[in-house]
Write a protein that binds this DNA or RNA. Sequence first.
DNA 1: GAGTGGTCTAGACCACGGT
DNA 2: CCGTGGTCTAGACCACTCA
Lengths: 244, 244
Amino acid sequence: MLNADERLPLYQRLKDDMMAKIANREWLPELAIPTEIELSKAYSVSIGTIRKAVEVLVAEGLLERSQGRGTFIRKPTFVNSLFRFFRFHSGTSGSGGTPVPSARILARQLAEPPEPVAAALKLNKRSKVIRLDRLRLFQEKPLLIEEIWLPHTKFARLMEIDTSAFGDLLYPLYEQLCGQTVASAQETLTIESASPDVAEQLQIALNQPVVVIDRLASGYDNQPLEWRRSRGPADQFHYQVDIR
Amino acid sequence: MLNADERLPLYQRLKDDMMAKIANREWLPELAIPTEIELSKAYSVSIGTIRKAVEVLVAEGLLERSQGRGTFIRKPTFVNSLFRFFRFHSGTSGSGGTPVPSARILARQLAEPPEPVAAALKLNKRSKVIRLDRLRLFQEKPLLIEEIWLPHTKFARLMEIDTSAFGDLLYPLYEQLCGQTVASAQETLTIESASPDVAEQLQIALNQPVVVIDRLASGYDNQPLEWRRSRGPADQFHYQVDIR
DNA sequence: GAGTGGTCTAGACCACGGT
DNA sequence: CCGTGGTCTAGACCACTCA
């Protein structure tokens, strides 16, 4: 059952096998994965070893345990990632729940990827990709302007429906329409001055500082799914890190 | 021996007690802490429970295990924190080892802390603090301009030696001269446009984007030790995060 | 080779969430 | 109440480091 390298610790091989089950959709989000006792019988290992493997997956953010209920596949909430970078002067704080910025698709086209995008998505230069241009607004004001690149093979159905029906969040759409789940992402942050285009779209003065966030999002199998570049006014920007 | 709240799990109380030993300098960095077996006898708990407590402290970055050698108190290397934020076009990459930017103290004075600094350092408004103004250079070019605030009670001896003898790194100096060890820090990152002062000190054009890093550094006992604000040209700025 | 942490087992009892 | 994960024990053997 466990065909991984014999030299690796048991709990590592368990972890790999469990990750595969998640990637292959043998275990589904929203449903609890098997009990510790069930797992320990299925794999024929002690319950402590199962615990260790699960512990690692919880630390890596793939699983979530809840005493008395079970262990679940965790879906990252990428809304928070926005809030980690930008502060909003929220007049709506009383009503509870984090407000989602609204979104509008400005353009959608089939294209060939520029070199860096093709490299990030691990595609040939001649592969077809979908490019979206998207504006995100918070309380009627432009917050972010985004360009989004997606491999056409995985996201073909995005070309079939009207862009006005895309809604405010893309990742749930990817999941429902294309069966693609975003499990993790890597973001790189730099600063530049607003070009004429960007200044106009964000409604800020020319050469004002702009934060650029490049994000590569991947699925449970660690294959790249989406590359996007987002730009926002730097005066709203705010980020906090703990160093140990 | 363990006087913490009876209701807490054993390993939590162990962890608290071990943290206290680190803060009180009963256990010293560079020396291994007692063996798992010794600890399990000293606390009269099973070795597995010791492991769990140590595991948590390793995850929090306070301890470091090394198979065959022992478990050690970990000293954060804050040089890296700079490199996490700024990329240097290093012509010296061949020689191995990360180059440390050189530093020059521009001014040193005894002062009363402004309101936000006093709050961050948990001091009365009337307490004495030491203020340092410091310039950091990389390959002869200004990289960061810093203002540093320290409680006078803990750092009095910094006023006694010549500022030209401070060297390129402050934290080792804090430790050798004042017996204060920085164990963790919290940084907040924002963007602003260069004021005339800052532009001149960093040798950049007026209104160019500038990255502002506010750092609150604390000791093993989580008491604040130092507050500093660093400014650097944003075009050198670069930061990367993983989201799960 | 002696001593350290790393992996693994096979149990026990407790605390919590649902029914 | 039952089943879940959370805590804890008391061992065993292995892999690594250093003298």
